[in-house]
Design a protein around this nucleic acid. Structure first.
Lengths: 143, 143
DNA sequence: TGAATACCGAGTAATACAGTTGGAATTGGA
DNA sequence: TCCAATTCCAACTGTATTACTCGGTATTCA
């Protein structure tokens, strides 16, 4: 039940971006340096975040990434799901296209998986990127 | 954020055991056959379940496993945690010994990880094995 | 024009997962 | 008393996933 580095690094990077967003496009290089992450790896994560509509890019010199929405309207859940895929604990209760097994209709353990899925989604959808920005100390590198 | 087969198979097996528990020791072979699982693999899972105090074993011919407690007092959470380890989404918010990073005290994303951890634990601890037994159709193999 | 950037696809080393294998110890029943 | 059925245990192994790296192209600002 561990999150992969995609979700962990991606959220850190999005928070970094949100904090520096008002200073024009933020280059991945600067995020990578501040957060001690691989710039090359961040490229992959931002490709997914861009496809999900969370960020938009500015190419060329002095380019970088900008949030495409207000931080208050970006939930942590939408960020994590765009990077990790569904947060469902097993494939048979995927939100969109559940991978049905032959016992699907009579499965009792499914109750458990659905409850986990729903409570995780509820938890991460109840926090926005804006919430985290407000809680971080903008003058510090520590967040 | 997927559960491994340990948690999935282990819960299935525990439910199977709970349903057949009143008929004396249940051999892993029979659980494996009913649930289409590897008997050898189940051995590993039951070693963990035994150490956690959920089942007790009877060795020798006609031996097998028995629940060591009433199904109503075994939470799904305690089963899953004994098989999967902590259900925390990242190591820095492990319940017992958090793996602290150098930004631990000022970390904002930690808020998210703690919330996920707590809501997963709450979800799985609110269901007992007894609840699942009551919901399964004992006459059917389908559960 | 050149440096700085995003963009893209493929390659790779390390790790974790999902078992298998071979045996030893125990016990009930023929 | 011995055999078959079972738990118990510790390696071993193939496969898949993760967490990146690498090399190159496209774009844009100064």
């Amino acid at each position: 039940m561990k999150l992969s580095t995609k979700g962990r690094y991606g959220l850190k990077a999005m928070l970094d971006l949100a904090i520096h967003n008002d200073q024009g496009p933020v280059a991945l290089k600067s995020i990578a340096e501040r957060q001690s992450l691989s710039e090359n790896y961040l490229e992959q994560l931002f490709a997914a975040l861009r496809k999900a509509g969370h960020v938009r890019s500015v190419r060329g010199a002095q380019g970088g990434y900008l949030l495409s929405k207000n931080p208050d309207s970006i939930t942590i859940g939408s960020i994590l799901r765009s990077l990790e895929g569904s947060l469902a604990p097993v494939d048979c209760v995927l939100e969109n296209e559940p991978h049905k097994c032959d016992r699907f209709d009579d499965c009792v353990t499914k109750i458990v998986w659905e409850k986990i899925r729903d409570s995780v989604n509820e938890a991460v959808d109840s926090i926005t990127l804006g919430d985290l920005v407000k809680k971080s100390n903008k003058d510090s590198v520590l967040y």
